[in-house]
Amino acid sequence: MNCYECVQQGRSEVAVAVCYVCGAAVCVDHVRAESKLLRGPASPGKVIRDWPARQLTCPVCRAAEESP
């Protein structure tokens, strides 16, 4: 699978990830990896825990998330 952003620019680059928002395939130059914490479900008598996770996005979705 090729990077969608590169194809739009007339290039062919192998995709290494898929954007979690829109599902576009992106190469290593276009992907953004961000650390997130996932919160586990709470139940009576249990401790709520956060687990480290990773979120991968394309440039378009990244810009949309960062816009005010």
Rank of each mutant, 00 (worst) to 15 (best):
A33L: 04
S43W: 10
A17I: 01
E65M: 11
C27S: 09
V31K: 15
A42F: 05
D50K: 11
A17W: 10
C27V: 05
A24N: 12
H30S: 09
P52E: 02
A63Y: 03
R54W: 05
W51E: 04
D29W: 06
D29S: 13
A15W: 09
R54N: 11
C6G: 04
D29I: 05
C61H: 09
Y4C: 03
A33R: 13
Q9V: 00
D50C: 00
E66S: 14
A42K: 01
G45Q: 07
A64Q: 15
V14Y: 09
A53M: 00
K36N: 05
V26C: 13
C22A: 01
C58F: 02
S12Q: 09
V21A: 11
S12M: 05
A42H: 07
R39Y: 06
G10W: 00
A17M: 00
K46I: 02
V60M: 10
R62M: 09
C3G: 06
E13S: 13
V28G: 12
V18Q: 14
H30N: 12
V7D: 02
P68D: 15
A42Q: 07
V14M: 10
L37A: 13
V60A: 15
R39E: 11
V31C: 06
R11K: 14
L37S: 12
L38K: 06
K46V: 05
C58V: 03
P68C: 04
A17G: 07
E65P: 00
T57E: 10
C19T: 06
A15N: 09
Y4T: 03
R62Q: 12
M1A: 12
P41Q: 12
A15E: 13
R32G: 04
E34I: 07
P68T: 10
C19S: 06
L38M: 05
P44V: 09
R54P: 00
G40P: 01
S67H: 10
A17H: 11
S12A: 10
A64G: 09
C27H: 04
V21K: 12
G23W: 02
W51T: 09
S67D: 14
A42T: 07
V31R: 15
E65V: 02
V26H: 13
C19G: 05
A42S: 06
V21L: 13
R54M: 03
G10N: 08
G40W: 01
V28M: 04
L37F: 08
V18P: 01
C61T: 07
V26T: 13
A53K: 02
Q55P: 00
P44W: 12
R32N: 10
L56F: 10
S12K: 03
E13Q: 13
A63V: 07
Q8P: 01
C6T: 02
G45H: 04
H30C: 15
P59Y: 11
R39K: 14
P52K: 08
Q55T: 04
V47W: 02
Y4R: 05
Q55F: 15
C6F: 02
C22F: 01
E5M: 10
S43K: 09
Y4A: 08
V26E: 10
Q8R: 12
S35M: 01
P52H: 04
Q8L: 15
R62V: 02
Q8V: 03
A15Q: 08
C58E: 04
A15H: 09
A25Y: 12
R11G: 02
G45M: 11
